[in-house]
Design a protein around this nucleic acid. Structure first.
Lengths: 220, 220
DNA sequence: GTTTAGTTTTGATGCAAATCAACCAGCTTT
DNA sequence: AAAGCTGGTTGATTTGCATCAAAACTAAAC
């Protein structure tokens, strides 16, 4: 959060954020069609966001962790257009959007912050489009792992070890591939000594190899 | 644009939008790495936005037409992270983002409008992720055509006739498929009497058939 | 301890789309 | 009108991933 506020200002801003909400693993924070009222800042826990077609196919559109903001899809039509499910017990700050808008008219730093958060989501989705549109299974999974570990590292976790919060099927849905292909690709990386995999535990042994797979697979 | 302003207010808002810029077909409005200063409202013409990998693969991330806003990717890091190219001669309003932010602190309706535009872009990208991650070539192209014709219709153009502004290769890049597959799929739809295709000209004969292909291909 | 259900791995086979290749149509240029 | 160029179509072949199928592992339930 942006700094440089007086205590009084800080209090006003804090007030937006005072409502907390706990969500148990497997529960929905919001779902498609719900009326939009608030953004949610994840305090603890791990979420997946997804949309589904009429015929029941699910597309995971993102995984969110502590410190990230969720619910911005709802602003467009005052209705949520995706589902957010907790993949582990979680706690969020409920931030009524009307309050956010009012306060951000008062505090340019907050306004700027909101804009950046939304833009960052647009940029993230741009790179997922690149992943889905242009890359092969190995590149996708390498990119996924690198992104995940980088975000965890920024939060003080290990640079090389991950406990996956999602199933192979959910990873596959996010990356546009089937769970079997996810599993096989994990095994392949493991055979090549790039990572160590044991169920949900993944250790990155050769980060450089992953990076190489991720951004210049063409050289084959 | 939102209504309900006095003349004086309207003038202030108009001032943000007074700078115009013409872009010739094939020219860049902005590109990856450019410093971000402004959003652009397309007045006339047609754009594609794309990103590329280090090894030169291009991913088209969107096609934009009159009335749409372009450049929101730049807010996140004060740097543009994609390229915007005019696919036909175009004119845009240059809207310095600092002015937009200042004015939207003054006018809640404008603030709300900006938020909706950004959220709409997030929602759009969500559905492109569904397209790329879950759908087959025919579904993708059907969805693409339906989306395009719907946006053109909203601008007063025909509900059934389209002049494509982009090549087969650009369509393919957007949809995550190769130009040959785009061409074949056009031919298939044409053989089935769903559309008529002649180069860049497309006429939709059976919109319902396209819709059916788009949202329940599973029933095969 | 055994059962059951959910998840992951691995193998065999099939298919949709990519790739490779040739040709064609519509232009601009000369 | 011929030559060159760009973009589009179509055919033959290959291939990466999906699909189908079965077994192995994990953890909770009995």
């Amino acid at each position: 959060m942006p700094l440089g506020f007086t205590n009084q200002e800080m209090k006003k801003i804090d007030d937006v954020v005072k409502t907390r909400h706990r969500i148990k693993q497997g529960e929905l924070l919001f779902s498609n069609g719900d009326t939009f009222t608030s953004l949610y800042a994840i305090r603890t826990g791990f979420f997946k966001s997804s949309i589904s077609t009429e015929d029941g196919r699910e597309q995971v559109i993102g995984f969110q962790m502590a410190g990230e903001i969720i619910g911005m899809d709802g602003i467009a039509n005052d209705l949520h257009s995706c589902n957010a499910v907790a993949l582990e017990d979680a706690e969020v700050c409920v931030m009524p959007f009307a309050n956010i808008e009012a306060l951000s008219r008062e505090f340019p730093e907050l306004q700027r912050h909101i804009h950046k958060v939304m833009s960052r989501e647009i940029v993230r989705e741009n790179s997922v489009m690149m992943l889905l549109g242009n890359m092969r299974a190995e590149e996708r999974l390498a990119g996924f792992l690198l992104n995940l570990v980088q975000r965890l590292y920024a939060r003080g976790f290990s640079q090389s070890e991950i406990i996956l919060r999602m199933t192979r099927e959910e990873i596959g849905s996010y990356l546009g591939m089937k769970l079997e292909t996810v599993s096989r690709t994990f095994s392949k990386f493991s055979d090549e000594g790039i990572i160590e995999v044991k169920q949900r535990y993944v250790r990155i042994i050769e980060a450089d190899a992953l990076k190489k797979i991720f951004n210049q697979q063409t050289c084959n």
